[in-house]
Structures are given as C-alpha cells and as structure tokens.
Design a binder for these strands. Structure first.
Lengths: 202, 202, 202, 202
DNA sequence: GATGAATGAGTGTTCATTCAT
DNA sequence: CATGAATGAACACTCATTCAT
C-alpha cells in the first residue's frame, strides 16, 4: 500500500512505528498487528526485516546506541558553568528527540536483564564515565572542590533523566509552565554552586 | 493448603506474593498461576480477594500509598544539613524496604496512565510539595539562597530515585562498593552547598 | 462438556482423538483445534496434559510401545508352521487394532529422525531380534534350512507391514475379498516352504 | 540468476530441487522458498511452471510414473530363479535411483487419498499385475507350485519396498554390512524355495 | 520470462478467568 | 472458603501465493 520511495526506508518505517507503539503500550501489551497497522503494512512484512518481536526491541536499542553522543566535547573549552549547562541542555534535547524510543526502552530495561546490561554498558556507562573524567579534571585544577565524582555524576544524570522522562510523560503535572531553559539554568546553578571550591569546612 | 491463622491475612499473603512475582517479572510476564504458587494457594483463590489481575496491581500501589511517610517532619527542628540528610536517608530506606513493590509498580507506572496519575497524585506530589514547602521556609529565613524550589526539589528527588533504583537493579555496576551512608553524605554536601546563601553573584 | 467418569481418562481421550486425527491428516495437517474438537474439549485443555503438539505425537508412540507384544512366546512349543502362522496372525491383529495410531506414526517416522530411531529401537528392533532368534534356533535344530536369518526376518516383517498397511489404507484395491485368515495361510505356506530344509542344493 | 541453456530444462531443474527438498523434509515442512533456493531461482518463478505446491507434488509422481519400468520383460526367457532375482535387483535399483522422489511421495501417499489412488493405479497396480501374470504362467507350466499369486506377489513386493526404504532411511540400523547382492541372493532363495513345486503335502 | 517484497490467513500456544465440586 | 480443570480469545509467527517491476 503505502510505498516509500527508498527500499531501505521500510526498516526505519517499521522501527519508528514500533517505537511509537512500544513507547505507548510497553513491550508485552504492544502487538505486532498494531505495530504493523501503525506502519501501514501487513504483520508478516515486519518479519522480513526483523526476526521476531524481541529483535525489534533490540533494534530500537541499537538505533539509540548508534546515534549516540558526539557529546559536548567540543564545549570542554568553555568554563565550568558553561560545560555543565551544555551537557544538561544536550541531554534534555536528546531525551526529547528520542522520546518514543526511550520510553519504549526504559520499561523493558526495567524488567529485562539482558537489555539492561546492554543499555547500561553501551549508553549509560560511557556517558557517566565521560562526565566523571571531566569533573575529576576540574577538581585537579582546583576549579571544583574535591568530591566523589562518580556519585555526583550519577546524581546529576539521575536528575536529568527523571526530569526529562516525567516532563515527557506528565507535562501537565511535572513543573508545568517551566521551560527547558529555565530548568537548565536552575540546575546549572544548583550543581555549580554545589561543586565550587569552598573556603571553609561546614 | 497453607492456612494462615487469621482470615484477613490471606489478602496480605497474596499481595506480598504478587509484589514479589510482579517485581521480578513485570506485570504482563507475571502469571496468576505463578503468583498463586508463590503464595501457596490455588489460582482461583486470588479471585476471592481481588477482582482481577489489574486490581491486584492497583492494590499493590495502595499498599505503598497507605504505609506512606510520616515524613521527616519531626526532624524539621534540625538544622538544614541535618534535614536534607534525614530526608535522603529516609527515602533511600523506603526504596530499599519496598523494593519489590516499587519495582513492580514503576514498570507499570511508566506505561499506564491511570496508575501513573494515581501514583503521582498520591505519592510523588505530596512528597515534592512537602519538600518544596520546607525549602521555601528556609529561603524565607535566609538559611538558603533564593531559588526555584520546585525545580530543586524535583531534581533532588530524581537523583534519589534513580540512584536507589539502579543500585537495586544493578548492584554490580552502579557505584559498587559505596555504602548508603557514603551516598547520603556526598549528596547532602552536594545539595547543601548548592543551596546555601552565597555572598556574591556568579 | 463431554465429561468422562474418571479423571485420568481425559489423557486417553485426547490421545485417541489425536491418533484419529493424526492418522487421517498426518502430523502437519492435523491441527490442535481439530484434535480438540474431535475429543470434545477446548484447544487449551490439551496443553494441560501434553506440553505441545510434538509431545502428543511422542505420547502416541509411547502408547504403542507400552502396550507392546507379549509375543507368541507361549506358542514356541508349537511346530514351526504353527509358530509362523501365530506370529503373522498376531502382527496383523496388532496392526488392525492400532491402525489409527500406527498410521499416524508411520508418516512421521518416515520424515522424523528422532521418532524413527525411537520407534526402531523400541519396537521394530526387538521384534526382529526375537524372530531372528527363533529362526536361528530352528535352523540349529535342523528344522529349517540354514539361511541369513536377519534378512529373512526383515523380509517377512516387511511383507506383513505392507500388507496390513495397504489393506487398511486401500481395502477396495489391495487383495479385495481375501480374508485375514486366507492371507495368513498363504503367507505361512510361502515362508515355511521357503525355509524348510532341502535335500539337494539348487 | 543461474540461467540454463535450454528453456524447458527449468521445469526439470525445479522438479529435482523439489524432490530433494520434499524428500528430506516432507511435503508440509518443505517451503517453496527453500525449493526455490535449492534450484537457484526465485520463489515466484516456480509458479510460472507449476500452478501451486500441490501440483509440484503431483508432477513428481508423474515424473516417476513416466520413467516407469520397461520391466524385466526381456528377462522372461530366463529360468524362474533368474527372473525372480532380476526383478528384485531391478526394483532395488529403481528405489535407489529415485530415492528422493520416492521418499517425498511415500509420506504423502500415506496420508493423501488422491495421490494414493493415482500412484496405486498407475505404478503399484501394473507392477503387481505383471508379476502375478508371470507367476501364474509359471504355475500353469508346473514350474511353480499352485498358489494365490496375488498374495505372493504383494508379499514379495512388500518385502522389497520395506527393505529398500528402511535401508535408505536407516543404513546404520537395518541390515548393516549387507550388500544389495547378498540381499537379492537370500531373498531369491527364500521366495524361489517357497514357490517351487512340492512332492508331498506338509 | 524472472523477480522477490508484500501479503494475510491460519497455526501452535498461553493464560486470565470461571465455576462445579 | 478453597480448589484447579477447563475454557477460548488473543498472541507471535510462518509461508503459499501474488504482482508491480
């Protein structure tokens, strides 16, 4: 029916339909029939591109992983405040742009060990490591106070994930009327102040 | 088979079995038969106490909600640092104690609008509001710097949730070898410094 | 619906329905739905007694194997002609009584290696071995001429199988109007004469 | 892709691929895709030469039927022992040469009435009739004892079919280490002695 | 003629739910 | 109250067949 101009688009078309349906329904409640309908094709067609339902899920994970972060590395020249803001902004945008994919994945990551480890190793881990490394360098240069960078980085990442996720899931309830920019600004201040060198011990 | 002394304990018995199985398998992958087996009863018996599988899930949510937070209200007399640490410690403990229930719920909250709103309104909302109120009072008393307290509170809550969740799901990978106390201490410092009044504008 | 008096009859009931349907349609063309309908139950019920379609097939094989031959061993006291006739008669009766089961199996044995080896080892093999042993004893006692007993026994068994099978499958065409008794008589004569000691070498 | 020099060879090419795949997998388990792959063509192409999967099967039957037996008719001049040996040898060779075709067919013949009747009428029937006719002539000439030739001929044919089939299917188990020649020799002796005129009644 | 992507009906199987005991 | 055998709707997946290229 709904033909796409390029032959390889079909895969993408299915992937996007799957992300949309999985994101809304979760893995188990999403049916191949519905995914097919959402993509405007017949159920059997999906199996020409993906071996089974699970592979479709893993393909979504891979799609996310491969388009992964060139990161705000270039921004490392900025000052500390600028770097934190840049990372926050970048991650919030990433979450927004891949909302359907992420929403589809998170639910499964929560219950599926294999997916969890795959995702953690390939996405979360590197991001946290990169952040920790940056912080550690700033601490070494006395631009930030000494701290356990792994904990800080994880906490910061956690804030962002939760804020991005819940703002996507419940825009009416979570911080309604507050823009991404306001969010970034406030968080930047919170974490920057939290990490700047301090004259005296508390 | 396995009779309980009190007639109403049966409900609790089922609820706990359900939380255990749902927590491990997720809602869809958990079967009534397995929940029954886990509780040492017959599948049919569950239906004498819960109308259907979904009600069982909602009952788990309710069980969490009702045993909810007397909060660190009593601790409000402490200084600010003590309050933040107390809240962090309390929430981390709550997550640990109800791990199975929470794990079961979160996956569903993620995909189920009704459950999400119920949970947000009854659990998340009040907690955030209470925290925001406390912070606001501290700001008014000049013990903390002015800030958008809703954002800060949500960010702090997000850190805790993510840290607790991932530490439960992936103890080997997320901050291995770091104790809860170390975590609380580091986070307290981060957020306290992030919020203390500052002499000059940055 | 169609309740049986004894609780364990349900398994047998399914097994017989399966044998009937498989016998008529073959394994692949037989559907669980049809087997269920033939047994007067719902499709799902079959899975309470058999793990899957293949197990149902294997259970048919086992049913055949267990009700196996006490053989014409008692008849070993008879003279050679009587023995041969007794075995022929017994095997033809066996084929007739288990026609549906056998027909179902043979088709699968033809294409399925596992089933083939199982059936050969447990049914065919022992039968042939027993026959070969008897013949060998008769040869040793000079009541039959020397011969390669394995070949003879296999040939005799082959005749019977084919004759029984085709007479069941095509009663109109294969030896119509000839009774089992006539068959047994003629075959007995053929093989007895074929095996009796001979005065001179040909 | 793989073009054949002559346009009509394509049909044969498909037929042989089909026989190979059907022989190994059986009718239902063989897929058109696999048959096509085995023939080095696209699935759609098969439908240019055969209306559907079933016609492909029937065409295999026809292929067998047409290349049918010029029979050991020429050998009728031999003595009786020579004739029997010649027929046995010829049939065993036929089974070996057409093993894939035959294996594919037999499974279907077993379950498919139409195919069965077609095959019986066109292949089995004539062979048996020819054999019966020969035997009858020998009996009339007092070179063989009087007997029910239809039964004898069917029994002999049955032996051969079973022996050929099982030796093809289970070479390790059925009469391993015995050559076709030994088989023919032993069977010839068995049936010849079984049929030679006898001086006295047993 | 030849292709092979697309189809969708039909399969085996699962499991929430019921109800006779 | 409790049971657990029975149900049957719904699912993932397969594959013979078609048809635009």
């Amino acid at each position: 029916m709904e033909q796409s101009g390029f032959p390889e688009d079909r895969r993408t078309q299915i992937l996007e339909a799957a992300a949309a349906v999985l994101g809304e329904k979760g893995y188990e409640r999403a049916t191949m029939k519905e995914i097919a309908a959402h993509a405007g094709i017949a159920p059997g067609t999906i199996y020409l591109y993906f071996k089974n339902k699970r592979e479709l899920l893993l393909a979504i994970a891979d799609a996310l992983i491969t388009q992964q972060v060139d990161q705000a590395l270039a921004e490392a020249t900025q000052d500390t405040a600028g770097y934190i803001a840049a990372v926050l902004r970048d991650r919030i945008r990433f979450a927004r742009e891949n909302q359907a994919f992420l929403q589809a994945l998170v639910a499964e990551i929560w219950t599926d060990r294999e997916l969890r480890e795959r995702f953690f190793t390939q996405i979360i881990g590197p991001v946290l490591a990169s952040g920790a490394q940056y912080l550690q360098a700033q601490v070494a240069a006395d631009r930030l106070r000494p701290c356990r960078v792994e904990i800080v980085v994880t906490a910061v990442a956690g804030s962002i994930v939760i804020l991005s996720a819940l703002r996507a899931l419940m825009p009416e309830q979570l911080l309604p009327g507050i823009s991404d920019d306001e969010l970034v600004e406030e968080l930047t201040r919170l974490y920057l102040y939290g990490l700047l060198p301090r004259p005296e011990k508390p």
